[in-house]
Design a protein around this nucleic acid. Structure first.
Length: 110
DNA sequence: ATAATGACTTTCA
DNA sequence: TTGAAAGCCATTA
């Protein structure tokens, strides 16, 4: 049988899968930070990898990637489509263009 | 193989 | 409030 050709690093997929699972569990109308996603996924301190994982998502993914923002509540994705997606879900942005984490921040304990 | 990059966070000034 | 600096590490070059 075919030996699997050049598999990726073992840790990569596992980490990505956890991140994806986390993002997928963010309820509609709420947002989570990259750091929070990473931490809840069992990867404390690896917020960047959360970002990398999301950046790697194929277009048309069912994952609610737009619900992930930075620790200040600011949108870090280029373009500007994320803002629209959030507003469409009822997430209101402040005058400074940032999301009020105290209000929309996801609380997994709920 | 090494070096630079980045959809980040936190702390300190 | 802003900005610099250090920490983090998979991905890219």
């Amino acid at each position: 049988m075919a030996k699997r050709a050049k598999q990726e690093s073992p840790g990569r997929n596992a980490a990505f899968d956890r991140i994806y699972a986390m993002v997928d569990s963010i309820p509609r109308g709420s947002v989570a930070t990259y750091g929070q996603v990473a931490r809840e996924a069992g990867l404390p301190g690896r917020a960047r990898q959360a970002g990398s994982a999301l950046r790697n998502l194929p277009v048309g993914s069912a994952l609610p990637w737009h619900r992930v923002i930075d620790a200040r509540g600011a949108i870090r994705t280029p373009g500007g489509r994320q803002r629209k997606l959030l507003e469409r879900e009822g997430v209101r942005l402040q005058a400074n263009g940032r999301v009020d984490l105290a209000q929309y921040g996801w609380r997994p304990e709920w």
